[in-house]
Computed example of a mutant assay.
Amino acid sequence: MEAVNAEEIQLRHVEKDVLIPKMMREKAKERCVEKVQAFGNCCKDSGFFMVFKCREENSALKECLTQHYRDPVFFEECKQEYIQEKMQFEKTGIPMKNRKQKLPTSM
């Protein structure tokens, strides 16, 4: 993916403060997948008492996610990816989620 000069692309407030952070959250969950799974398994196994029994897993998950949320390099990576997706949408009119879907193999 080629880098885009961010100064050339004007991002709206909602893009900088909502859409890019949403992308960051999704990607951070992928990068913290082991901790997400550990917390999910703990909650599943603990039932009603998960608030008390899963504190350690919850803390580890929060720490991992927060580390990514506060990383300016990670923000810049997500911003560049968002800009690429936006430019591709402007060219094709097809949203990224629709471009990622596979075409049916049988017609």
Rank of each mutant, 00 (worst) to 15 (best):
E90I: 08
N58Y: 14
Y82E: 04
T92D: 12
L61N: 04
K86P: 14
F39Q: 11
Q88F: 01
D71A: 05
M1E: 10
Q101H: 13
K86T: 10
L19V: 07
N98G: 11
C32P: 04
G47I: 00
R99I: 03
K100D: 11
H68P: 04
K100Q: 10
V36R: 00
K102A: 15
K102P: 08
A3V: 14
T92G: 07
Q88K: 09
M96A: 15
T105Y: 13
E85K: 05
C32R: 00
R70Q: 08
H68I: 09
E8C: 07
E34N: 08
L11E: 03
M24I: 02
Q37L: 05
F48I: 15
L19C: 06
Q84C: 07
N5A: 07
C64F: 01
K53R: 09
S46A: 09
M107F: 15
E34C: 10
Q101F: 15
T66K: 08
H68K: 06
L103P: 15
I94Y: 14
V36N: 00
F48D: 10
F52P: 09
P104I: 08
E7S: 05
V18E: 14
L65Y: 03
E26R: 04
C32T: 08
K79C: 05
E2R: 07
C64V: 02
R31H: 04
E85P: 01
N5K: 02
K53T: 04
A38H: 04
K91H: 06
R55G: 05
M24D: 03
M24V: 01
P72A: 07
K22L: 03
E63I: 12
S46V: 06
K86M: 06
A28L: 06
C54Y: 00
F48A: 11
N98W: 07
S46G: 02
M1L: 08
E26Y: 10
E90R: 08
K29Q: 06
E63W: 14
M87R: 12
E34H: 07
V33A: 11
K27P: 00
S59Y: 15
E30I: 09
P72G: 05
K44E: 13
S59M: 12
K86R: 10
V36C: 01
I20S: 00
V14G: 14
T92P: 01
E56F: 09
